[in-house]
Write a protein that binds this DNA or RNA. Structure first.
Length: 573
RNA sequence: GGGCCUGUGGUGUAAUGGAUGCUUCUGCCAUAAAGCACAACCGGCUUCGGACCGGUUAAUCGGGGUUCGAAUCCUCGCAGGCCCA
């Protein structure tokens, strides 16, 4: 539809000359949606709203102005009629031209259909997932991981180059606690048998004792210091914890079909950060506090002062994050750096970007925090130390099991049951997270996570499998096409909706909003199902070839959309 | 105490600030306006796959304001979450 929109913009450019810029016109020209009850055939396919022009003419009566302008436009043979309705000028395209145009576009572009090159030549670095080593991935981690992954896919589809970084939390007090507990109570036999669980148990044990005995916190801090000084035993344990964690993380990332261009630890950037901070201190951009720590005053940014180094000179999160950001700029010269991190860190990132700006890094304005709402349990927030967790792996496994049970029940005959169960089960969980605007909080519930009805991945996957089944049963290439064969309303609407994928991709890319794609895929599939119920493809005589082309175009569009969410589509389920 | 985010039917969610029909002022036209899904209720089809389709009921937290037009922007509250102190 973008191409048809272009035609309308050209017509308006001819009419208005220099009155409006291209951008202004573009924002006043809308593609009519066809979903649900929004569809109104009287509104045509593309509409121009005349409010801006009315304001310019200082007219209150936009309706009659619209009529006047509509009469004076110079048209094109692809447009069958132009009609002013209220303050809108509605462009009705020739139905056949529209159908043929869209179906051709889908077939020519194939798996690239929906993409554009607006981001060509630009590089975006993303920091996402970023779990702490020594702790398991829980459902709180899923949003960053999946959002980051999907945003990368969407940016790539918009022509951007990307570099995705999993920035592990491999330092900090929690590591000190684990190392201390490991040295004190670690039982090598138990650890060998089940390292991940044992590391977690040690951590929880420490936290419980710490509540009664504050001296333990100091001991954990000692461990952090020891580690930073390069104590061999500490380093060995640290490496072990990291290895175990990475192995566990990879298992889950693999299930999620998420991968990173780079996995690195915060600790690598301590030195870089310290160096930068010391320079800033010399230049007077940072200051020593009463107790000898280093802080940056951010009152000029309307933000609270931020600590960047401890009084003992050791690094903290901000030290490393400053170092890491600068390192990334030097290494990649990115156009944008995106941190996909929960909203609880919002102030922290504002401070981080302000510090970079204050230190003289002009590119600080190209850093952006995608601050998504948290995933909470009904009983409150998740906490590793209290053991109040729902493990991500458990969620995925349960969902896969649920999918497998349904497959056994409804379609026991299909091949690759396990693989399909994975696609469906994992898809359901991912979709649950991605279909909601990221700024909203999500309350986790098993019912929600395992939902397979309505607005869900399995619903979309099922529609796709049905479409595939039609093609397989007929087993012939589409031939004998004529746009006139697709003569019902639902067919026309379905074609138009297919044609809207590029628009959805564009908007999703601008706002880093995968939920736009999720919604699109759902609406598109809903329309396909309506089509499926109303229009028979098999035995449809001379219309067969045309209908096959439509089914196949639907499959391309929905598959491309779902691939932007990282959700695989089984051909049978 | 200060700041940020969220608030849409019973539930979960969507909506770049956009749909206001015509008119000889008498009438004419219209599902004349917040979409989807779940749940509930009614129905269809199960002859290309029922993990389906059609229909009914039902919502913008409250008060002011800006605008030709507000779920959306501003403001004062309320509720929930988070951050800083």
């Amino acid at each position: 539809m973008e191409k048809f929109k272009e035609i309308v913009i050209k017509i308006l450019e001819d009419y208005f000359g220099n009155t409006f810029s291209r951008e202004e016109l573009e924002s006043s020209v809308k593609i009519q949606d066809v979903s649900g009850k929004k569809r109104n055939p009287n509104f045509g396919e593309i509409a121009y709203q005349i409010f801006d022009f009315a304001k310019l003419c200082e007219l209150n009566d936009a309706s009659s102005l619209a009529r006047e302008v509509a009469d004076e436009l110079t048209l094109d043979e692809r447009i069958s009629r132009v009609e002013a309705v209220g303050p809108y000028i509605n462009f009705h395209f020739d139905r056949n031209a529209l159908i043929e145009g869209i179906l051709n576009e889908v077939e020519e572009e194939g798996e690239k259909f929906g993409s554009n090159n607006s981001g060509e030549g630009k590089l975006v670095v993303l920091d996402y997932s970023a779990p702490n080593i020594g702790k398991p991935l829980h459902v709180g981690h899923i949003r960053s991981t999946i959002l980051g992954d999907s945003i990368i896919r969407i940016l790539n589809f918009n022509g951007y180059k990307t570099h995705g970084i999993n920035y592990l939390g491999d330092v900090g007090l929690h590591i000190g606690k684990i190392i201390y507990a490991f040295k004190q109570w670690g039982d090598s036999a138990k650890i060998e048998a089940n390292p991940e669980q044992e590391i977690l148990d040690l951590y929880i044990k420490f936290c419980k004792l710490e509540e009664k005995d504050e001296a333990l916190t100091k001991k954990a801090k000692k461990e952090v210091e020891l580690l930073e000084k390069g104590d061999l035993e500490s380093k060995r344990i640290h490496r072990f914890i990291e290895e175990m964690s990475l192995r566990a993380f990879d298992r889950v990332y693999d299930m999620l079909n998420v991968s990173f261009d780079e996995t690195t630890g915060q600790s690598r950037f301590s030195e870089k950060g310290k160096q930068v901070i010391h320079e800033a201190l010399k230049k007077g951009k940072a200051e020593l506090t009463e107790d000898g720590a280093v802080a940056v005053d951010l009152s000029e940014y309307g933000l609270p002062r931020k600590m960047v180094l401890r009084s003992d000179g050791t690094a903290i999160y901000s030290t490393q994050d400053i170092g890491a950001a600068i390192h990334r700029k030097e290494r990649f010269d990115f156009d944008k750096l995106l941190y996909v991190v929960a909203t609880e860190q919002e102030l922290y990132f504002k401070q981080l970007f302000a510090i970079l700006d204050k230190f003289g890094y002009k590119w600080a304005k190209n850093c952006f925090h995608v601050n998504f709402g948290m995933i909470n349990l009904p009983e409150g927030r998740m906490s590793t130390r209290e053991g109040a967790l729902v493990y991500l792996e458990e969620v995925l496994n349960k969902s896969i099991d649920a999918a497998r049970r349904i497959i056994e029940e409804k379609s026991p005959g299909i091949p690759n049951k396990d693989e399909v169960a994975r696609m469906v089960g994992v898809g359901a969980v991912k979709y649950m997270v991605l279909s909601v605007d990221y700024s909203k909080p999500i309350e986790f519930s098993w019912d929600r996570a395992l939902n397979i009805e309505g607005n869900s991945a399995p619903y979309i996957q099922y529609s796709f499998a049905r479409a595939n089944s039609i093609l397989e049963r007929i087993g012939r290439k589409p031939e004998g096409f004529s746009p006139e064969h697709l003569d019902t309303d639902i067919e026309f609407d379905l074609v138009r909706k297919i044609g809207m994928l590029p628009t959805a991709v564009k908007f999703a890319g601008l706002g880093y909003k995968p939920h736009i794609i999720a919604n699109y895929a759902n609406e598109l599939s809903g329309m396909f199902n309506t089509f499926y119920n109303k229009v028979r493809v098999k035995d449809s005589g001379e219309k067969l070839g045309s209908r096959l082309r439509l089914v196949s175009a639907y499959m391309t569009a929905v598959q491309n959309a779902m691939s932007l969410l990282g959700i695989k589509m089984p051909r049978k389920m």
